[in-house]
Amino acid sequence: MGQNYKDIAIKLFKQGKFELAKMSFNIAYNRSPSDEILAFIELCDTAKDNPSDTLSLFEIYFDPAQKDNTQTILEIIELIQNANDESAIMLESQNAITYADFKNLLNDNDFKELFESILFSTKIIITHKDELFDLVNSLVDNGFSDIGLKYLESSVKMFMGDERVAMVLQKIRDKDENSLK
């Protein structure tokens, strides 16, 4: 039965459903503990910060030419963690924070006050298009339509065809029309 949960978790992981995969790996581990499953659980956590690289490396693990896959998965995790550490160092040196860190700061602060306090000194690093749309919507909602539009314009090539672009642009137009009245 443990193998069943492991197989389910692997499928979920390949689909990018890392939280669900982690839960399934945990169940598999509880039923049949192994270093391999522990490594997969760690990989699920790592994938949240670096999904595309983690998925690529995950595929290497399943390469039929590999004989000792447990060692391979541990090496993969180490590579990803080293890359994440380097990214953190780079963010610090550039006075930048990830959007996830920015959102965590919002738990204790007002959006407008927080954004104004970092506006000229800190860059916000966006890693997913969902983060971009969340930030742009928050900017528009809090009176920063011009800045939201600049974020959107600088990223529009990546999001061509995404219906949320039109929705955000309409929201900005509506805000501008209301401010003229």
Results as ranks from 00 to 15, higher is better:
residue 129 K to W: 01
residue 150 K to T: 15
residue 115 F to Y: 15
residue 104 N to V: 13
residue 152 L to E: 09
residue 120 F to K: 12
residue 141 D to G: 01
residue 120 F to R: 06
residue 103 K to P: 02
residue 124 I to C: 08
residue 94 Q to P: 04
residue 147 I to N: 08
residue 116 E to P: 03
residue 152 L to G: 04
residue 131 E to H: 04
residue 127 T to D: 00
residue 106 L to W: 04
residue 143 G to K: 03
residue 117 S to V: 05
residue 91 L to K: 09
residue 105 L to A: 09
residue 135 L to T: 03
residue 107 N to C: 08
residue 105 L to P: 07
residue 119 L to M: 13
residue 140 V to I: 11
residue 93 S to I: 11
residue 141 D to Q: 12
residue 142 N to G: 06
residue 139 L to E: 05
residue 106 L to T: 00
residue 127 T to L: 06
residue 109 N to Y: 11
residue 112 K to W: 05
residue 103 K to Q: 10
residue 133 F to C: 00
residue 130 D to I: 00
residue 147 I to A: 04
residue 113 E to Y: 08
residue 138 S to P: 03
residue 101 D to R: 15
residue 117 S to Q: 04
residue 98 T to F: 00
residue 152 L to Y: 09
residue 139 L to A: 10
residue 138 S to N: 06
residue 93 S to C: 05
residue 109 N to V: 08
residue 99 Y to C: 00
residue 104 N to C: 01
residue 146 D to C: 05
residue 138 S to D: 15
residue 131 E to M: 03
residue 147 I to E: 15
residue 122 T to D: 01
residue 143 G to F: 05
residue 122 T to K: 15
residue 96 A to P: 03
residue 131 E to R: 05
residue 96 A to M: 05
residue 144 F to I: 09
residue 144 F to R: 07
residue 90 M to V: 02
residue 94 Q to E: 14
residue 143 G to E: 03
residue 97 I to P: 07
residue 123 K to N: 14
residue 101 D to C: 00
residue 125 I to Y: 07
residue 122 T to R: 10
residue 136 V to I: 12
residue 133 F to V: 07
residue 94 Q to D: 09
residue 132 L to Y: 09
residue 150 K to R: 12
residue 101 D to G: 05
residue 112 K to G: 01
residue 138 S to E: 13
residue 137 N to L: 12
residue 124 I to F: 05
residue 106 L to Y: 04
residue 104 N to S: 13
residue 111 F to I: 13
residue 130 D to A: 07
residue 146 D to M: 10
residue 143 G to H: 11
residue 100 A to D: 14
residue 152 L to H: 08
residue 127 T to Y: 01
residue 98 T to S: 12
residue 129 K to M: 09
residue 131 E to Y: 00
residue 116 E to C: 05
residue 148 G to P: 05
residue 114 L to H: 06
residue 111 F to M: 05
residue 105 L to Y: 12
residue 97 I to V: 13
residue 142 N to Y: 10
residue 141 D to A: 14
residue 152 L to R: 05
residue 106 L to A: 11
residue 130 D to H: 02
residue 149 L to R: 11
residue 106 L to I: 14
residue 101 D to P: 08
residue 99 Y to L: 03
residue 123 K to V: 13
residue 118 I to R: 02
residue 96 A to H: 10
residue 108 D to F: 04
residue 136 V to C: 01
residue 128 H to M: 01
residue 139 L to R: 02
residue 136 V to N: 03
residue 98 T to A: 07
residue 123 K to G: 03
residue 116 E to F: 06
residue 124 I to Y: 03
residue 108 D to E: 13
residue 111 F to S: 08
residue 124 I to R: 04
residue 126 I to R: 02
residue 123 K to I: 12
residue 111 F to Y: 09
residue 94 Q to R: 15
residue 126 I to H: 01
residue 138 S to L: 13
residue 152 L to A: 10
residue 142 N to C: 09
residue 113 E to T: 11
residue 146 D to P: 02
residue 106 L to G: 01
residue 126 I to Q: 04
residue 97 I to D: 05
residue 114 L to C: 03
residue 95 N to P: 02
residue 149 L to Q: 13
residue 100 A to P: 00
residue 105 L to G: 03
residue 129 K to T: 00
residue 137 N to I: 07
residue 102 F to V: 07
residue 128 H to V: 01
residue 104 N to R: 12
residue 122 T to G: 09
residue 151 Y to W: 15
residue 117 S to C: 08
residue 105 L to I: 05
residue 122 T to W: 03
residue 146 D to R: 12
residue 91 L to W: 11
residue 103 K to R: 15
residue 142 N to E: 13
